[in-house]
């Protein structure tokens, strides 16, 4: 079996910007549909479901899912897997709220596991900000990119 030291390194993508250019607006109608799709009614105080931390940052970052994989020289059809997701809120998200996304890739590390074989572990950080600039939340996501061609 190939040793990790014998493999080529993971692409050097740390620091790649993920700043978005689009404004993300949390629609009250969509928030209602989203809440009901998970088995709850939307809040009546104007707050949006907190899972919009993930949705807003993914949709409005500077890459699509496929594009982010491509930056890591990984074909999205090979099946990226979510490893973990963390969020730190500074304020609640609001329906009608408009937000921008900034962020960057923190690391891409090549590893081996008994279950998945060779894989690259991607860690990236995104920040969601109000248009006036106040940061509302910061999220770190970790994806596992199985490198079947290197197994």
């Amino acid at each position: 079996m190939t040793e990790l030291a014998d493999l080529p390194p993971a692409p050097a993508v740390s620091g790649t910007t993920l700043d978005g250019t689009e404004i993300f607006t949390i629609s009250a109608v969509e928030n209602g549909a989203l809440c009901r799709s998970t088995g709850v009614e939307p809040a009546r105080d104007g707050t949006a479901h907190p899972i919009y931390y993930y949705i807003a940052t993914q949709v409005a970052m500077g890459q699509t899912v496929a594009g982010l994989c491509a930056v890591c020289e990984f074909d999205v059809d090979d099946g990226p897997m979510m490893g973990s997701s963390g969020v730190r809120f500074q304020a609640p998200l609001r329906t009608g709220g408009q937000y921008r996304v900034g962020g960057e890739i923190l690391s891409l590390e090549r590893k081996k596991s008994r279950k998945l074989g060779v894989m690259d572990v991607l860690t990236y950080r995104l920040r969601l900000s109000e248009l006036a600039g106040a940061v509302v939340l910061e999220t770190d996501n970790v994806w596992v990119l199985p490198r079947k061609e290197l197994a």
Binding site: P50, M81, S84, S85, G86, V87, F89
Partner: peptide, 10 residues
Amino acid sequence: GRIERMESRF
């Protein structure tokens, strides 16, 4: 209350 921080593992 409100969720201030959350770390999830898949």
